[in-house]
Amino acid sequence: MLGLLISEIEQKEMEYLIRRELDELLLDLEDHRIDHMVKRAMKERYRILFQLYRRVASEKECMKYIPSQIEK
């Protein structure tokens, strides 16, 4: 197990960056022009980023990005 010691400002920055990436992935997953193989990789990336997001964001914020939203 690894640990990470970050300040509150760094936590907010990480939260913001991950949230932006999650939003971008959600938009791209709705695009019908993207191939299914690419979407599968994007879904995996989304799940990994969501796991990171859970570690830095509040439970209320995480509820907006639960992975079941992308299972279409």
Rank of each mutant, 00 (worst) to 15 (best):
Q69N: 08
K64V: 12
E8L: 00
L49C: 04
E21C: 13
L2K: 13
I18P: 13
D35W: 07
Y53A: 03
L29R: 03
L49S: 01
R40D: 15
E30G: 10
I66L: 02
P67Y: 01
L27M: 04
H36E: 15
S58M: 01
R19A: 11
E24V: 10
A57T: 08
I18S: 08
I9E: 14
I18A: 07
L2E: 13
E8T: 08
D28F: 10
E21Q: 15
D23F: 03
R20T: 07
K43H: 01
M14D: 09
S7K: 05
L25S: 03
D35M: 11
I66D: 01
S68V: 08
L17S: 12
Y65A: 02
D31C: 01
C62R: 06
M37F: 14
R19L: 10
K60C: 05
M14W: 13
S68C: 09
L27F: 04
K12P: 03
F50Y: 11
K43T: 03
L25V: 09
M42Y: 05
K12Y: 09
E71D: 08
D35L: 11
R19S: 13
K64C: 00
R55L: 12
E44C: 06
A57G: 10
I66P: 00
E21R: 15
E30N: 13
G3C: 14
S7R: 06
I9Q: 11
E21A: 15
L25N: 02
M63N: 02
Y65M: 00
L2W: 06
E71S: 06
D35F: 09
K39F: 04
E24T: 13
D31L: 02
F50H: 02
